[in-house]
């Protein structure tokens, strides 16, 4: 059976976005992304317009999955933080609440130390919001289930 869908509601979306906006400012970073572990983009803030967010999301998730596999090979549970250093920009990737990936892109206006510090603080807030989102998902939040409303005709029409 495929797992039940990961659902993002408006309220939690706003909450999560506020937290990463704060992180963006306090870490002096260029942009911040939240991605779910399967590679779907959840939210993005900052100078994002030149970056292909869909590719970034799927590659980040692939990256976390691959390093997770690597961790198991050497007997670790997971590597919760990854850091990639470039000539201009750097990427700091961390797993939050075991379910979501936080990506911070920064340049010389910031530093790895500052980003790590701010990410740690933001992760606590994000974890709380994500837990709230997950329990809401489990409860089903049936009042607004788009999937129930899909008709066979809707599916047919996609292809005409």
């Amino acid at each position: 059976m495929p797992q039940s869908p990961f659902v993002m509601y408006d309220e939690e979306f706003k909450e999560l976005t506020l937290i990463i906006e704060k992180l963006l400012r306090e870490a002096n970073s260029k942009c911040v992304y939240l991605v779910d572990k399967d590679g779907q983009l959840m939210s993005a803030v900052g100078e994002t317009k030149d970056i292909d967010a869909t590719s970034l999301a799927s590659l980040t998730a692939g990256n976390i999955a691959a390093t997770g596999g690597l961790a198991k090979v050497i007997g670790e549970k997971e590597f919760s933080i990854l850091f990639h250093e470039g000539e201009r920009d750097n990427i700091h990737i961390s797993v939050v609440g075991q379910r979501v990936i936080l990506v911070v892109i920064f340049d010389k206006r910031s530093s790895l130390g500052l980003v790590r510090l701010r990410v740690k603080k933001a992760s606590e807030d994000l974890t709380k919001s994500i837990e709230k989102l997950l329990s809401r998902m489990q409860a089903g939040a049936a009042q607004e289930n788009i999937l129930k409303e899909i008709t066979d005709d809707d599916i047919e029409r996609l292809f005409h």
């Binding site: 495929p2 869908p5 990961f6 659902v7 993002m8 509601y9 408006d10 979306f13 779907q40």
Partner: peptide
């Protein structure tokens, strides 16, 4: 796992 985003009004699936 499909991803339903009510905020962005999107249904995402993985094949």
């Amino acid at each position: 796992m499909s991803f339903i985003n009510y905020s962005a009004k999107e249904i995402n699936c993985k094949i």
